[in-house]
């Protein structure tokens, strides 16, 4: 699926959270959305998920506008995972996956849930309540939920935040493997620059609601004369403009 954001603006009263941003993610491409805290990433993702109404601008998914008329149809091809959004704590992992499989209209529910359980190593805590899981386990379950409908367009917000390096690496590897075997366009918001370098085809750098730079990781590193993406990020984040 191709995602296009055209001249998106979001104002909250007098504050401009997102100021006229435009970008495109081609089919099967992964875009990294970077920027310091409060730069408008969450608001942008909220608009792309249909959770926040843009003040102006347009979001097109495969050429179809993400408006209230097309919302349900388009959302069935999309999904989202974030460590800051949880699944019902009192339901077991299995129950949560089943409920979300049904909500997304998955046909062979048991089969799909079992696939996710196998792929993401969820078997040990499948019947445990989601609220009783560790951060690493929660992130894996959240990722399972976000892939339950085999989305064509996936939004990941800091998928490895607060995870130990081992589990973080497991998740990154899994995302890479999944992307290789499935048709998937992805938007990744992350503060982990190595993760972004590893997973993203191109990136946009946001600051104070606008896109201040864009391109492939290597191009940006070269352009700013830095050794890696982290230094490039710091240079852009600390610059006056």
């Amino acid at each position: 699926m191709k995602l296009e954001a055209k001249n998106l603006i979001k104002k909250f009263n007098k504050t401009i959270a997102v100021n006229n941003i435009s970008f495109e993610i081609k089919k099967n491409e992964t875009l990294g959305m970077l920027g310091p805290n409060g730069c408008g990433k969450t608001t942008s993702i909220g608009m792309l998920l249909g959770l926040i109404t843009p003040s102006s601008g347009e979001i097109l998914i495969d050429g179809i506008s993400l408006n209230s008329r097309n919302r349900v149809k388009l959302l069935s091809f999309m999904n989202f995972s974030s460590p800051y959004v949880e699944l019902p704590k009192k339901l077991t992992v299995k129950q949560n996956l089943e409920v979300y499989a049904r909500l997304y209209g998955v046909k062979k529910i048991d089969e799909r849930v079992n696939e996710m359980v196998e792929d993401l190593n969820l078997k040990k805590f499948l019947n445990k309540k989601s609220g009783e899981l560790s951060s690493g386990q929660k992130n894996r379950v959240s990722l399972a939920k976000s892939l339950i409908n085999k989305p064509k367009l996936l939004f990941l917000d800091e998928p490895t935040a607060s995870l130990d390096p081992d589990i973080g690496d497991f998740i990154r590897k899994y995302i890479e493997k999944y992307k290789k075997n499935n048709e998937l366009t992805m938007l990744l918001a992350s503060h982990n620059m190595r993760e972004v370098e590893r997973l993203c085809d191109k990136i946009i750098m946001m600051k104070q609601g606008i896109i201040v730079d864009r391109g492939s990781c290597n191009d940006l590193i070269k352009k700013h004369g830095r050794a890696n993406l982290e230094d490039t990020f710091l240079k852009i984040a600390r610059s006056e403009k």
Binding site: F80, S82, V85, L87, G131
Partner: peptide, 18 residues
């Protein structure tokens, strides 16, 4: 309120439900 308490609001409202 259960949806709010369990921080499940976003998941619920991005699911393809009317």
């Amino acid at each position: 309120l259960e949806e709010i308490w369990s921080r499940n609001f976003t998941n619920l409202f991005i699911a393809p439900i009317r």
